[in-house]
């Protein structure tokens, strides 16, 4: 890496950590959520700096999308009133601080102690493909199994969490038309 990218790396790393810490300092759920989003976007830019353009841009995409939705849930479920008013972002302060500092130390020590291989030769043109193949290539079966399992988990969790099923909508003999819905959908089911 050149001087410029080294400086950019450290600045972005700093931005990621500072915004990560701000999550616990600000007094509104919206600010906390979008601080987290900013932290993730800084990490995404670091990925672009590593020439992992695709992964970097996709990380930014996913994280902004996720945080935009998460803000809604944070406001809805966190806090008493619900979090439309200023509120503290911390609870269980001492335990949480101890755990997070401990984890940070463990991870940092890990990063510093791992004997990273030094570069041999030059990186190939398409590093994204190379990374994908080295991560997934020999483990494609695992990847193919994991994604349907994850998807099934999401569907199962939704089904369990649904307060209303088809019998509530369509009656005991499933014949009621139109179904009773608290809100009509758009396709006239």
């Amino acid at each position: 890496m050149g001087v410029l990218s080294t400086v950019a790396f450290w600045v972005l790393a700093g931005v990621a950590v500072v915004f990560g810490a701000l999550v616990f300092r600000v007094d509104s759920m919206a600010r906390a959520t979008y601080c987290l989003a900013a932290s993730f976007v800084a990490v995404a830019v670091v990925l672009v700096l590593f020439r992992q353009d695709y992964l970097g841009v996709v990380t930014a995409l996913m994280m902004i999308m996720e945080m935009a939705i998460m803000a809604v849930y944070m406001v809805m479920f966190m806090g008493m009133n619900p979090a439309l008013m200023p509120m503290s972002m911390v609870h269980g302060r001492r335990t949480a601080l101890g755990l997070s500092v401990g984890l940070f130390v463990v991870l940092t020590v890990g990063v510093l102690l791992v004997p990273w291989p030094s570069r041999r030769g030059t990186p190939i043109a398409d590093v994204t493909r190379a990374l994908g193949e080295s991560i997934m290539g020999p483990k494609m079966l695992v990847m193919l199994t994991v994604s349907p399992v994850l998807f099934a988990t999401i569907v199962a969790a939704l089904v369990l969490a649904m307060p209303r099923g088809r019998y509530d909508r369509l009656g005991d003999d499933l014949r009621r038309r139109p179904p009773t819905d608290p809100q009509r959908g758009g396709v006239g089911r």
């Binding site: 841009v57 996709v58 995409l61 902004i64 935009a68």
Partner: peptide, 16 residues
Amino acid sequence: PVGVVWFNAVDVAVWA
């Protein structure tokens, strides 16, 4: 090289 994904990422930033 990732222009299409970039467009997508920016239009998601509009959500925020």
